[in-house]
């Protein structure tokens, strides 16, 4: 069972046994839609199968393989490798938009180290938007010989990076952009403590962050709505957007950090979209998912402060949003 620690900041969980978040390797070899091969849609680098441009089909067939490495088994099991291993492999699928979780493939019986071929079929009528799937190595019996290893039947022992099938591009959700709404803050309950604030990032529906901008500051809205590319209004608009963006990005990144799980996965697509550029910029020499696990630990560790993380976010923001340059241009306009 997961252990739970309580800190002054919040409660958190870690797996109390040896787990290998990248201990399995999965590759997709072939995709067919209604029996016709469409393997060109497989993107191995981004672990994506993008079907959004294909509108007229009913049945998807996916085939590939999972590699179970010896060193993974050595790490997560106390048993001798040359005996029958108490494990099985499964592919678990999650479809948030259609509230569906299921195992789409299972290798039961004797599972050895090496390559295991899989295939599964999905009916399009059951899915919408983005659907994720990933392999898991599961323990199939109890053990009491080692406290370092998972002891209960059904425990997950190892996994791999998630693959995403894009069935549809979701309306109103565009990568890298969040919904922005102008509202009268005096009428917006979520801003009742700050009716005069300029903006408010709402995570009330965590899957869809919304940036509210106060409609009641007419002069500021005039600046934000300005479409010009030259002159003091354009320069001021850039500075304002930079300022709001840095604050918003800090909050989004902190929320994404909070949601990183033991496998390095986050809960929502937008969290991947803010985390990946941050990791690439601030941790350029390290593997993405290793960084995720490392910053997750940093975020939750009660012995350490999260000041270092926030410093990294601020550095990232200053590189990403050219506030300094825009302020200099504004100064140039008003001189």
């Amino acid at each position: 069972m997961a252990s739970t620690k309580t800190t002054s900041r919040r409660r958190y969980r870690f797996l109390p046994y040896r787990y290998s978040s990248n201990g399995l390797k999965i590759s997709i070899d072939e995709i067919a839609m209604d029996g016709e091969n469409f393997s060109s849609v497989i993107n191995n680098n981004h672990k994506r199968i993008d079907l959004a441009d294909y509108l007229d089909w009913d049945l998807l067939e996916v085939s590939g393989s999972i590699i179970l490495r010896e060193k993974t088994v050595e790490r997560v099991l106390p048993e001798e490798i040359n005996s029958d291993l108490p494990i099985r492999l499964t592919l678990a699928l999650r479809a948030p938009n259609t509230h569906l979780r299921k195992a789409v493939w299972e290798k039961t019986g004797k599972v050895d180290v090496g390559k295991h071929k899989f295939e599964f079929k999905l009916k399009r009528e059951n899915y919408f938007g983005k659907v994720g799937f990933k392999p898991y190595l599961i323990r199939t019996s109890k053990q009491e010989t080692s406290v370092k290893h998972a002891s209960h039947s059904g425990a997950r022992l190892a996994s791999a990076r998630k693959w995403t099938i894009i069935f549809d591009k979701e309306e109103g959700v565009s990568e890298g952009h969040m919904e922005i709404r102008y509202e009268d803050f005096s009428e917006l309950p979520s801003t009742d403590q700050c009716g005069k604030c300029l903006y408010h990032l709402s995570l009330e529906v965590p899957s869809k962050p919304i940036l509210f901008i106060n409609n009641e500051h007419e002069k500021i809205r005039e600046v934000l709505d300005n479409k010009g590319t030259r002159g003091p209004y354009a320069r001021l608009r850039e500075v304002l957007f930079d300022h709001i963006s840095t604050e918003v990005m800090t909050k989004l990144l902190l929320k994404a950090l909070e949601d990183i799980d033991e496998d390095g996965e986050v809960r929502y697509d937008w969290e991947d979209e803010v985390l990946n550029p941050f990791i690439e910029e601030q941790y350029p020499d390290r593997e993405n998912y290793q960084v995720r696990l490392s910053i997750r630990n940093e975020y939750w560790d009660e012995e350490r402060s999260i000041v270092n993380l926030i410093t990294n976010i601020q550095l990232f923001n200053q590189k990403n949003y050219t506030l300094k340059t825009h302020i200099e241009k504004l100064i140039g306009e008003v001189k």
């Binding site: 069972m1 739970t4 969980r13 678990a92 979780r101 898991y136 599961i138 059904g154 033991e262």
Partner: peptide, 16 residues
């Protein structure tokens, strides 16, 4: 919910 952080739900049947 806490228990299911270590057990893969999709591998369990109704009686389990």
């Amino acid at each position: 919910n806490k228990t299911l952080s270590t057990v893969k739900l999709e591998t369990l049947n109704n009686s389990q």
